[in-house]
């Protein structure tokens, strides 16, 4: 079996300690900087089919979010902000600064898209272009649920339950928990669509009690401080000023909405988007279509 490094040929492993937390990132390629942010229950490994392709156009920085993968896993210890998207966004901005990148584009999937969304709102001067993959803003989910939309009752509600219940159940069989995420949300209804080396990375992560806890804290923050920040921004009419490309999965939860772009319009000064034939895990399930849609968008400034 190959190693994770072999899935990212020519990339280096970088570590930067920012804001008291060591952030791991795989970095490679040439061109303007592109920050790629993974989701749950994943690590930067999820980009193995996308990052190498984009590396001929961009200097790709693919970190692990705090708590995830190989990055530091600070104790939350009752601090609801320890895993807020604002905190994670500040980590990412600081890592890019440490690497010498002042302004950069961001591609985020799932949790990483929430971090990208927060980064674009909190640090508008730093984000050139933003690709959001298969998310609805937290406050919009809450509102649409009251209007009768279901979006399943997905694992976010479970993961955000008070500790230690979700943690104690997940740690009993991490492999089953991780694999079942892909059984639930891939178009093939199978974890087999995921590269075994990447899968091993995900299972390894959620076999560690402190990371199981940290990733639950990510969800607890979403239903707490993240939601509050979203609502504040929405009320204040704050919008993402950079161009946004929303890509959603034909087999994901956004298709329950007739027009996902309409839900995102109020957040974005400039919005484009498309549906991609895929389950929720677009970077691994349909990387070709993802690149076909995202690359022209990301390169638009260069044209």
């Amino acid at each position: 079996m190959s190693t994770l490094g072999e899935l990212f040929p020519g990339f280096s492993e970088e570590r930067r300690t920012v804001r008291g937390v060591e952030i791991f990132a795989r970095v490679g390629g040439r061109g303007p900087p592109l920050l790629m942010l993974h989701g749950y229950p994943e690590t930067h490994a999820c980009w193995y089919r996308v990052a190498p392709a984009l590396a001929s156009h961009f200097t790709v920085v693919a970190p692990d979010l705090r708590g995830y993968g190989r990055s530091g896993c600070p104790s939350a210890d009752g601090n609801l902000r320890a895993y807020s998207k604002r905190t994670m966004a500040l980590d990412m901005a600081a890592v890019m600064t440490a690497m010498g990148f002042e302004r950069f584009s961001v591609m985020g999937h799932d949790r990483g898209a929430r971090v990208g969304f927060r980064l674009a709102l909190d640090a508008p001067k730093r984000v050139e272009r933003l690709v959001l993959i298969d998310i609805i803003a937290t406050s919009d989910i809450a509102r649409l649920r009251t209007e009768g939309y279901k979006f399943g009752m997905l694992h976010g509600v479970f993961l955000s339950q008070p500790a230690p219940l979700p943690e104690s159940l997940i740690i009993q069989d991490p492999r089953d928990w991780v694999e079942s995420r892909f059984r639930r949300a891939t178009l093939a209804r199978s974890p087999d669509v995921i590269h075994p080396v990447a899968m091993a990375d995900y299972v390894e992560m959620l076999s560690q009690a402190d990371r199981v806890h940290a990733t639950c804290e990510d969800y607890r923050a979403e239903h707490g401080v993240d939601l509050a920040l979203d609502l504040d921004d929405r009320e204040a009419g704050r919008r993402i000023v950079c161009p946004v490309d929303l890509l959603w999965a034909s087999g994901g939860s956004l298709v329950e909405i007739a027009d996902p772009l309409a839900v995102w319009e109020p957040w974005c000064a400039e919005l484009v988007g498309a549906e991609i034939e895929s389950g929720h895990f677009i970077p691994e399930e349909n990387p070709t279509a993802l690149i076909e849609h995202a690359l022209p968008f990301l390169l638009a400034n260069e044209a």
Partner: peptide, 10 residues
């Protein structure tokens, strides 16, 4: 109606 995703079951 609810469908709740928990470890090992839906």
């Amino acid at each position: 109606r609810h469908v709740v995703d928990v470890p090992g079951a839906e």
